Simulated assay, not measured.
Amino acid sequence: MNSRSSIPYVRWPESILNTEALLDSIDNIKGVDKPKTDSDKMNSFRHKFEATHRAADGHFVRSKAEMLIDNWLYMAEIVHAYERKLPIEEEMYCDFYIPTGKVYIEFWGYDNDEKYLARKQQKQAIYQKYNFNLIELTDAEVLNLDDILPRMLLKFGVQAY
C-alpha cells in the first residue's frame, strides 16, 4: 500500500516482468510487430499457407474448412478470434479462440503428412499441459458443424444461438 495515497499496488518480481509471454502481450497491445527472421518465416506452418479465404465476418483464414468454422461461429453470434497466440511461453497459435468459456478450437486437416502429425501431437501436449479447454475438429466433423459444434461448446458453457 502506498503510504501517501493509501492505494494498494503490486510489486512484481523481475522473473515475471521479463518473461517473453508478458513482453509479447505488451507489444501486441501497443501494436508493435516483433520482427521475424527469414528462417522463422520459412519454417513456420502459419507462413507456409497464406490466409486467402475470406470468412463472412472479414477474417482471412487458411483453408475452406477454417472458413466454414469461422462462418458457423459468426452466424451463431459467438465472439471469436482467429489465430490467436496462446498465453504461454511457447510460441503457439490456436486456430480459433472463444473468450466466453476460454475455449480453443483446433482444426486438424492434414492426417497424411508426418511433419503435420508431429506438430499436431506437440500442440495437443501443450493444450494438455496447460489444461486449456480444447475442441478438436476433423474434416468429417466440419461437414456436420450444426450437429457437432453446439454440443462441444456447451461442455464449456458456450451456447450457440
Results as ranks from 00 to 15, higher is better:
118 A>K: 14
112 N>L: 15
92 M>E: 12
103 V>I: 13
76 A>C: 04
76 A>S: 14
78 I>D: 02
123 K>D: 01
109 G>N: 03
81 A>N: 09
86 L>G: 05
88 I>D: 14
77 E>V: 13
111 D>I: 08
104 Y>H: 04
96 F>D: 08
76 A>K: 11
99 P>K: 10
86 L>W: 04
84 R>Y: 01
78 I>V: 15
64 K>H: 07
90 E>S: 05
120 K>S: 01
105 I>P: 01
128 Q>R: 03
101 G>P: 08
67 M>H: 00
84 R>S: 07
90 E>Y: 08
105 I>A: 04
78 I>N: 00
129 K>H: 09
102 K>D: 03
85 K>T: 02
116 Y>I: 03
114 E>V: 01
67 M>Y: 08
119 R>N: 06
111 D>H: 14
84 R>W: 07
74 Y>K: 09
113 D>S: 10
128 Q>D: 06
85 K>C: 02
86 L>E: 05
96 F>V: 07
114 E>W: 15
80 H>A: 05
116 Y>F: 05
77 E>S: 15
103 V>G: 07
64 K>M: 06
130 Y>P: 03
106 E>L: 03
129 K>T: 01
89 E>D: 13
65 A>T: 04
122 Q>H: 10
73 L>G: 07
64 K>G: 08
88 I>L: 15
82 Y>H: 08
126 I>E: 14
73 L>H: 15
113 D>V: 10
89 E>C: 09
119 R>D: 02
76 A>L: 03
102 K>F: 07
107 F>A: 01
130 Y>N: 10
124 Q>C: 00
123 K>M: 04
118 A>N: 10
78 I>W: 05
122 Q>L: 10
130 Y>L: 04
105 I>Y: 04
116 Y>A: 00
114 E>Y: 14
110 Y>G: 14
113 D>H: 14
83 E>P: 03
88 I>Q: 14
106 E>D: 11
124 Q>R: 00
104 Y>R: 02
68 L>C: 09
74 Y>H: 13
82 Y>G: 06
65 A>N: 13
109 G>M: 01
73 L>T: 13
123 K>I: 09
107 F>K: 01
81 A>I: 15
117 L>C: 15
106 E>R: 01
97 Y>N: 04
121 Q>Y: 00
94 C>S: 15
115 K>H: 13
80 H>C: 12
77 E>D: 12
118 A>I: 09
97 Y>L: 04
